[in-house]
Amino acid sequence: MSNLLDLIVAGLATGAIYALVAVGFTLLWQTSQTINFAQGEFVMLPAFLMLAVMHLGAPFWLAVLVGVLLSALLLGLAFKMLLVDPMLRHGVLPLAIATMALAIGIKEAVKQFFSAEASPFPSIVPAGDISVLGRAISLQSLGVLAVAILAVVGLTMLLNRTSLGHQMQAAAQNPTVARIIGVPVERMILLTFLINAVLVALASLLITPIYLAKFSSGEVLGQAAFIAAIVGGFNQVRGAIAGGLLIGVVDNLAAAYISTQYRAAVPMLLLILMILFRPQGLLGRAEERTV
């Protein structure tokens, strides 16, 4: 049983990171019907941006700052203006395909301009264990969990408690009416893209010390985020959070108790069952925006 607790804590920590990525994913879907197949690569890239700044001799904190700004610029602003805006009116599928191509492009660019090898990445949380109720628990897991929870709570507060958040929700739920009552819909959509960019940069900062910075690491991460988003509920921020935590824990437990070979299969089966029997997700409402 002692092992179980460790597994759950570690699972919650990775799950919290999945949740961050999944929240960004659902935000993009809600405000602009963008299924971002490059979301995993979006998480991979900021770590390399930070590493690049550090190569120039900047200290770690400055590199993080510049990395977050750059990712807001590239993965938020440029992504929206150059790719999503011109394609949005043509429907969901061509845009989804374009993001697949973008994923290939980002992966190859990192491989070509940085390195094909995995690089170590400094952790914002010191390594080591602390003792909780007589048990040693990895400080890193706890730190990741704490930062992710803070980010998610902050985002939920922003969305539910502030006027800005209400405007964003209005823009997502019914752009036409939102526009009529004076919500600057375009600015709100841009804001969700920027939030997504910051969320992926944060996720990058948290997960890269654990799994190293590698050009291909986005594939697994992106898939985990998709699954988390669907299992939790595609149109609900808190659904994506629940889904992320659930997938993290299930994945870890499956690896330990079922089979390491088929660990990836368990979230997939969960996904299939979910879609077949409760397509709106754990916490989601039935899709409002039917086509």
């Binding site: 299924i35 989804a96 998709f226 299939i272 879609i275």
Partner: peptide
């Protein structure tokens, strides 16, 4: 299910 849900069911099958 349709659209992206269908895409993800088939994606899961692929994996």
């Amino acid at each position: 299910v349709q659209h992206h849900y269908l895409a993800f069911v088939t994606l899961a099958f692929s994996t």
